[in-house]
Structure formats: structure tokens, C-alpha cells
Design a protein around this nucleic acid. Structure first.
Lengths: 126, 126
DNA sequence: ATAGGTTGCGTACCATGGTACGGAGTCAAG
DNA sequence: CTTGACTCCGTACCATGGTACGCAACCTAT
């Protein structure tokens, strides 16, 4: 059994963040023992999931839906959400790759000559 | 010569956004003709740059610095900023790629069988 | 010259994802 | 059994990146 502090530490977040997620309905407010919340391994798992889904670009609202879906059985809805997000991720990845290339160009050009300014704006105009 | 409305349209942003960028020092507040701001091609260029730098993950503060650097001649500073951001972008891209893979797994598994819930949380645990 | 659409300006408000604060209760070690 | 750390709770505040509002002045086409 975990206290909120341990749970937060396990998930790499602050105590306030756990409480925040509970307010938003992303984590259940668990049973208490003398007023103190008691968490289990499942809560830690959900917390980890939340953080990973965030890096996948889901908003907290969407993550909430995913968590509800995980409990339910609406496979097609879950699939649809995943597919939509995959598309968005592909687009975002391409975008970042493009930006990365521009920065690489910028870095090279700033390295090369030694006179004048390096063309920051220009390096993005491709 | 462009009015603020044309400039905004050209940059794919709203008028208020242009004014917002001016308040933040990202765009010069230009010369006026009878109180009306007059913009040129250079402003449109800066505006486009801002949007692209944003997709590269720069904050408005950092973009402001980049714009100042573009005018100046501190090549090494510009390079350093670029290098730092390239590293961050590489990390972010890898992260998104990872999330994408997890979603792909999720989508497949939700498609496969027809019984029970699909393991949303599990699909991220790799 | 007059109506309608833009503009200018300051200020207020919004969503997202947290973070901080203050005062009381609880728990564990010495 | 006291001290210090941790917890509970509501509410307030924060940063980022905008978006909206209202009113006066302006510009353009009819």
C-alpha cells in the first residue's frame, strides 16, 4: 500500500499533481485508512500510463477517455482514437524532422564562414 | 504595403495574434500612415519564421532571441541555440516514435479478437 | 457624405497543465 | 508523548499562447 507521496514519487510527479489528476477524474480517489488515501499497484500503473499518453500527445481529457475505454469494451472507439492519434503523430514527427533539418542547416552555416550574421530566418525558408 | 489584417492572413494567424507578437517584441510595431500600421514583406517573413520556429519547439521567448540574433553577429550563440534544440528535437522525435509504436500495437490488438476489452494501458507498457 | 468593414488601443478573459499556500489532522520514531 | 514529516482540503495562483470586447477613429466603395 502506498501513500500519496510514494505514489507520486513512483510516477515521477508531485503530490499536487496526483491530487490534480484525481480532481480531473484520471485517478480514482481511493479508500482511506483514517483519512489517509491508500494506493495500490494499479494506481501506479495508471499514473505511469497517464504520463506516457501525455508524451503521445493526448490531452488529459483524452487520456481520461482512454482510461474509461480500458475498463469498458468499446473496441472500435479505442481503435479510432488510436488511429487518429497515429496520424497526428506522424504529421508531428514529420514537422519536427523538418524543423530539425532547418536547424541543422542553420548550425552548419553559422559554423562555416566567420563574417557577417548567420541567416537564421533564411535557414527555415525551404 | 500590408495592413495588419493582410499580414495576419498571409501568416495564417489572427489580427490579435500579430498584435500579441508585437507586445512580446517578436514583431516590430511599424511605421504608421495616419495611425494605421504599414507592414512590408520583411514582416511577413518574420511572421512565417515565428510560426516555423514554434513547430520546432522554440518558445516565443527563444524565438525572440533568435530574431535578435539574426540581426546581430553572435554566430556562436546562434549555433549553440540550434544545437541544443536539435538535441531536444531528436529526443522528442524518438519519444513520439515510441508512442506511435505503442498506439500501433493498441490498434492491432483492438482489431484482432472480438471479445473483451482491448488492453489500452498494457499496450504502453513496453 | 454616409454606411460598413478595418484598425488601434487597453484591458479582460480563456484553456491547459499544473504549483503553491495555509491551517488542521495523522502517523511513526525517539 | 512530543516532535517532525506527511497528509487532507479548498482555494488561489502561475506560465504559455493566445482570444475577445468595446469604443473611437479611420478608410473605401457607393
Amino acid at each position: 500500500m502506498l501513500t500519496i507521496g510514494k505514489l507520486a514519487a513512483a510516477g515521477g510527479v508531485g503530490v499536487e499533481t496526483v491530487r490534480f489528476y484525481q480532481r480531473r477524474g484520471l485517478l480514482q480517489t481511493p479508500a482511506r485508512n483514517g483519512g489517509i488515501r491508500q494506493y495500490g499497484a494499479e494506481d501506479a500503473r495508471r499514473l505511469r500510463f497517464i504520463r506516457q499518453a501525455q508524451t503521445a500527445g493526448f490531452t488529459l481529457e483524452q487520456i481520461k477517455e482512454l482510461l474509461e475505454l480500458d475498463a469498458g469494451e468499446d473496441r472500435s472507439r479505442a481503435r479510432a482514437l488510436a488511429q487518429t492519434r497515429i496520424k497526428a503523430l506522424d504529421a508531428k514527427i514529420a514537422e519536427l524532422q523538418h524543423a530539425r533539418d532547418a536547424l541543422q542547416r542553420l548550425a552548419s552555416e553559422c559554423a562555416a564562414g566567420s563574417t557577417g550574421a548567420c541567416p537564421i530566418l533564411a535557414s527555415f525558408e525551404v
